[in-house]
């Protein structure tokens, strides 16, 4: 018996080592692409609010790390054009060229998402699960809510940000996005939205 568990243990150590190698390889692959000096400066500005590693430490400011590249690109264009006016962002996006936006989106999409801000409350996570299943969140946001193309990552996103965003969607106050999101949560209660945010962040 002892022998067997010892064998398993050494297998376990080997596995852990292999995983370590794999994850550091993955980390290497995640190194953001090189950007111009002008954009490097801009990225530093982005990071003052959205976090040094792209994971926001500020209340209700979204994390950008690991968001789908296409989602970031789309939102930056919509903010620049005034379709989705965000007061805090207006000054930073108004002069961006299409190429700047492409580079910024590629950069932030390659950073590793880590949940910041309020921690998911297990009771709310449990409450949010069936709501998320009923509303078919995975249909658009991906199996692990990791985000797909123009649709954002929810997994690891700040809970306080997601609650505010969903309230805005429900009130048609989040222009620019496909109206599918407003449709999905039109009849969700405020309690549902809070539970959904805790559930989604915890994925």
């Amino acid at each position: 018996m002892a022998e067997r568990s010892g064998k398993y243990r050494s297998q376990g150590i080997f596995l852990a080592a292999a995983l370590l190698v794999a994850s550091s390889l993955q980390a290497l692959a995640q190194v953001p692409p090189p950007v111009s000096a002008k954009l490097r400066e801009r990225i530093e500005v982005c990071k003052t609010c959205h976090g040094a590693d792209g994971n926001s430490q500020m209340e209700k400011i979204p994390s950008l790390a690991g968001q789908p590249e296409y989602f970031l690109l789309n939102q930056l264009v919509l903010m620049r054009e005034g379709v989705r006016p965000v007061k805090e962002m207006a000054e930073f996006v108004k002069d961006l060229t299409d190429e700047d936006i492409q580079s910024l989106s590629a950069y932030f999409s390659k950073l590793v998402p880590i949940l910041t801000g309020p921690k998911p409350d297990p009771a709310l996570v449990a409450k949010g699960k069936p709501v998320a299943e009923k509303l078919l969140c995975v249909s658009c946001h991906g199996k692990k809510l990791e985000g797909v193309e123009q649709i954002p990552r929810l997994s690891g996103q700040r809970i306080d940000y997601m609650i505010a965003a969903m309230r805005a969607y429900r009130m048609d106050k989040r222009p620019g996005a496909d109206t599918t999101m407003s449709a999905a949560i039109a009849s969700a209660s405020d309690g549902d939205l809070v539970a959904l945010a805790h559930y989604a962040a915890s994925r």
């Binding site: 296409y70 690109l73 789309n74 264009v77 919509l78 299409d98 936006i101 492409q102 299943e133 009923k134 078919l136 995975v138 249909s139 658009c140 797909v148 193309e149 123009q150 649709i151 429900r170 009130m171 048609d172 106050k173 496909d178 109206t179 599918t180 407003s182 449709a183 039109a186 009849s187």
Partner: peptide, 29 residues
């Protein structure tokens, strides 16, 4: 009141359709 109808009767789960269907993106560039 703003927003969508709260009387939507969609029952996607009963449609038998794949859960991976979603609207396509439209490139802004």
């Amino acid at each position: 009141p703003p927003g969508m109808s709260r009387m939507d009767k969609t029952n996607a789960g009963a449609s038998g359709q794949a859960r991976t269907l979603r609207p396509h993106r439209t490139p802004p560039i």
